[in-house]
Amino acid sequence: MENTHILFWLLKDIAWCMVWRPLGLAMVVPTLGIAIVIAWRTRAYASELAHNLAIVFWITANSYWMTSEFFGFDTVHVTPTITGKHLALVPFLLGLGILLYYYLVTKPRENRAATATL
Rank of each mutant, 00 (worst) to 15 (best):
V29D: 04
V76H: 08
F8M: 07
M18V: 15
L53H: 00
Y101V: 09
L87G: 07
F70T: 01
G33T: 03
P91Q: 06
V56M: 00
I34P: 10
P80W: 08
G24E: 05
E110C: 02
T79F: 11
E48M: 07
I36A: 12
P108T: 08
P108D: 05
T115F: 13
V19T: 15
K12A: 14
L23N: 05
L96H: 08
I59L: 12
W58C: 06
V56I: 03
T117E: 15
W9V: 04
I38L: 15
R112T: 06
R112D: 11
A114M: 11
S47P: 00
T117C: 09
A46R: 09
Y64L: 13
P91I: 02
G95Q: 01
I34C: 12
G95E: 04
Y103C: 12
Y45P: 00
T106Y: 01
I36V: 15
F71I: 03
Y101W: 15
A46Q: 07
E69S: 03
F8W: 05
F70R: 02
A54F: 04
R112I: 07
H77L: 15
H51V: 07
R109L: 10
L32N: 12
I36Y: 05
N52T: 06
M1F: 13
H51G: 09
T117R: 15
L32Y: 03
L11P: 01
L96Y: 05
I82F: 08
L25E: 14
G84V: 02
R21M: 10
T115Y: 11
T31G: 04
E69K: 11
G97E: 00
T60G: 07
I59R: 02
G33V: 05
E69A: 01
N62K: 03
W9N: 06
T117M: 14
T75Q: 15
A26T: 13
G72E: 05
L11F: 11
T81F: 12
L100Y: 09
R21E: 15
S47C: 06
R109S: 10
A44G: 02
A61P: 08
T106N: 06
A39I: 13
G72R: 04
K85V: 04
L11C: 04
P22I: 09
G33W: 07
S68D: 04
T31W: 01
D74W: 04
I34D: 12
V56K: 00
K107T: 04
L10C: 13
W20Q: 13
G97N: 00
Y103T: 14
